[in-house]
């Protein structure tokens, strides 16, 4: 209540300034779209006196032709971010693994960074992957852990200045989801053998034949759609979460300019900071959710022999 009163007072106080700002015909600047989309340029800190950002154009390569498919492999901002994330993840985790191994040689648990990484790896392994993928799930542990750490690093890279969220690009999330889809289906084929066909064609054994055929005709497409909705949901969930958070932060910052007032500026700024903290949580949460759901889907298809 008091907060609302304060807000009103601030708006009233700022009113003359705002009117003045509106008078000077504002130039339309889109700060959101370039931020959430991919580009053939990198945003880097500029030298003193040249503004805050300079754009570095990335090289354009001639598109590859594989059959009828045209593949433009020119590096973009998100490719650079993916490479950076991959490097960071590999350096962080292999050095952590070396630390763990070194301490293990003396028969002691790891300390510091390697201890923290080990705790995260163990948590994801023991609480997220192994309980969900079902018995003999050891083989799926590296895949799930890679998903988690790679997505997490991409998410976090989007939160630092000059960074960009590669996981906020549908191409990235769709690829990760397709890989997950392939892992799920191959796991199903391996676990069920010829029984895998039952996860596509609905064929109830405890019904009379007259009922079985119409049931199969109606429900088989449902089963098939179910197979594709899972990765689709994975891709859209990650993409939408990462994009939405950035849009909210930028919209709040944009409020400062649409108010055009120094008095009101701290308010959207405080809200943007709060949303950034939320985004930090969401970065971990979405990486966790992606891994958890991938594990659950693998477990579902492996245990669907009834």
């Amino acid at each position: 209540m008091r907060f609302a009163a304060l807000l009103t007072a601030l708006v009233l106080a700022a009113a003359p300034v705002r009117i003045a700002a509106q008078d000077a015909a504002p130039k339309k600047v889109d700060i959101i779209t370039p931020h959430i989309t991919d580009a053939h340029a990198l945003d880097l800190p500029a030298g003193l006196g040249h503004g805050l950002v300079q754009e570095i154009e990335l090289p354009h390569w001639a598109p590859l032709h594989i059959g009828s498919l045209e593949l433009d492999m020119s590096p973009t901002k998100h490719v650079v971010m993916l490479l950076l994330a991959a490097t960071l993840v590999i350096v962080a985790l292999t050095s952590a693994a070396r630390g763990v191994a070194k301490r293990a040689a003396t028969g002691r648990p790891p300390t510091g960074f390697s201890g923290a990484m080990e705790a995260m790896v163990l948590y994801i392994r023991n609480e997220v992957i192994l309980p969900n993928v079902g018995h003999h799930g050891e083989a799926f542990v590296p895949f799930g852990l890679t998903l988690f750490f790679f997505i997490l690093t991409c998410n976090l890279l989007g939160l630092i200045p000059y960074g960009s969220t590669a996981t906020g690009n549908i191409a990235v999330t769709a690829t990760l989801a397709i890989v997950t889809f392939l892992v799920i289906e191959i796991a199903g084929m391996k676990a069920l053998g010829a029984g895998y066909i039952n996860t596509i064609i609905f064929w109830p054994h405890d019904m009379p034949l007259v009922m079985r055929i119409p049931m199969s005709i109606i429900l088989s497409p449902v089963e098939l759609i179910g197979k594709f909705t899972k990765p689709f949901a994975l891709a859209i969930r990650l993409f939408a979460n990462m994009t939405a958070g950035h849009i909210v932060v930028l919209a709040l910052i944009g409020l400062i300019f649409s108010f055009g007032s120094y008095v009101l500026a701290p308010l959207p700024l405080a809200m943007a900071v709060a949303i950034m903290f939320l985004e930090l949580m969401v970065a971990f949460l979405q990486a966790f959710i992606f891994t958890l759901l991938a594990s659950v889907f693998i477990g579902l298809v492996r245990e669907s022999h009834h």
């Binding site: 598109p63 993916l82 690829t175």
Partner: peptide
Amino acid sequence: SPSTGLMAWTL
């Protein structure tokens, strides 16, 4: 609309 180049890079 996913770009195929980025998909290949991601993979």
